[in-house]
Simulated scan of single mutants.
Amino acid sequence: MRIGILGAGNMADALGTQWLRAGHDIMVSGRDPMASAALAQKMTTAAHRPGPIASGPDHAYAQAALGQPGLASPEPDVAHARAGTWAEAAEYGEVVMVAVTEAGLHDVLRAAGPAMSDKPVIDVTNAVGPGAYDVTRSLAELIAESTGGHVVKAFNLCHVDVWRMTPPVFDGRPLAVPLCGDDERALAATRTLVTDLGCTPLYAGALNRAKLLEATAAFMIGLWITGADAQAILPPLDHSGAHPTT
């Protein structure tokens, strides 16, 4: 699929490079056209080095949902990254990822224009800095209201270095990526991109639960910054009470 990325920073680099390896075409966009072009070249070069390509059972389903052939293993040598303006990236992508700072979010969405309306939109943003998170609002819902896109909140719980791993597996267990969204087509596309990283997609509820996912990021990042092992605060599944059978 074609992925337009609003942003030309570390998250665009890490996730975009992995998706290039999986056979998706990428357009990045940023405030500095020369820096965006340099990033696109760097990503393409990195993606064409030998490396594993992840796949998963959701891949063919998501391709069909996007109206594309069900290719279980896209050819990585045909994928490449390019650079464009905010509006060009929003227009280019069959799926658009928002990967800019909260401070610049309004300006970027305005510059991107109406092209994200009715498209799958992946929001990876977090409010960062002391007191930056506001429990009364959700950045994901703001993006949905501003663009008319079908937003899925995802990829916001991990440091960028995790997304550079091929794949992110810890103690033999693939990383689970929670997804919050309302639109099945957008969720299906996001599941594909999660499994292409070698991770496990985990549906975490409707878009109105994105504020909880954003709050979790704010809380966990605060612990990690102090050097705490934030993962240690959660017991294993076997010790977390009764669970409904499936």
Rank of each mutant, 00 (worst) to 15 (best):
M43C: 05
T44F: 02
T44Q: 12
T45D: 12
T45R: 15
T45H: 09
T45N: 12
A46G: 02
A47Q: 09
A47P: 03
A47C: 11
H48G: 05
H48V: 07
R49F: 00
P50F: 04
G51M: 13
G51N: 09
G51V: 07
P52C: 10
P52S: 09
P52K: 13
I53M: 14
A54Q: 11
A54P: 04
G56Q: 13
P57S: 13
P57R: 14
D58C: 09
D58T: 10
H59W: 02
H59Y: 03
A62D: 07
A62F: 01
A62G: 07
Q63E: 13
Q63G: 01
Q63F: 06
Q63P: 00
Q63L: 15
A64T: 06
A64I: 08
A65L: 14
L66N: 05
L66Q: 10
G67E: 10
P69M: 14
P69C: 14
P69A: 14
G70Q: 14
L71F: 00
A72W: 04
S73I: 08
S73F: 04
P74D: 04
P74R: 14
P74G: 02
E75R: 11
E75A: 10
E75S: 09
P76Q: 14
P76Y: 06
P76K: 15
P76H: 09
D77M: 10
D77E: 08
D77V: 06
V78M: 13
V78Y: 04
A79L: 08
A79F: 00
H80I: 04
H80V: 02
H80A: 12
A81S: 06
R82V: 06
R82Q: 13
A83I: 05
A83V: 05
A83C: 06
G84F: 01
G84D: 07
G84Q: 10
T85K: 14
W86E: 10
A87E: 10
A87R: 14
A89P: 04
A89R: 11
A90V: 05
E91D: 12
E91N: 09
E91A: 13
Y92G: 03
Y92R: 11
G93D: 07
G93L: 11
G93H: 03
M97K: 07
M97R: 04
V98R: 13
V98D: 09
V98Y: 02
A99I: 04
V100K: 11
V100W: 03
T101A: 12
T101I: 07
T101V: 06
T101W: 05
T101P: 10
E102Y: 03
E102W: 03
E102F: 02
A103V: 09
A103P: 02
A103W: 02
A103D: 10
L105K: 12
L105Q: 09
L105R: 15
L105S: 03
H106A: 15
D107E: 15
V108P: 08
V108G: 07
L109Q: 07
R110G: 01
R110W: 00
R110E: 12
A111V: 01
A111M: 08
A112Y: 00
A112V: 02
A112F: 01
G113L: 13
G113C: 08
P114F: 02
P114S: 09
A115W: 04
M116A: 04
S117H: 06
S117Y: 00
D118A: 12
D118W: 00
D118F: 00
D118S: 12
V121H: 06
V121C: 07
V121N: 07
I122H: 03
I122K: 10
I122V: 15
D123M: 09
D123S: 11
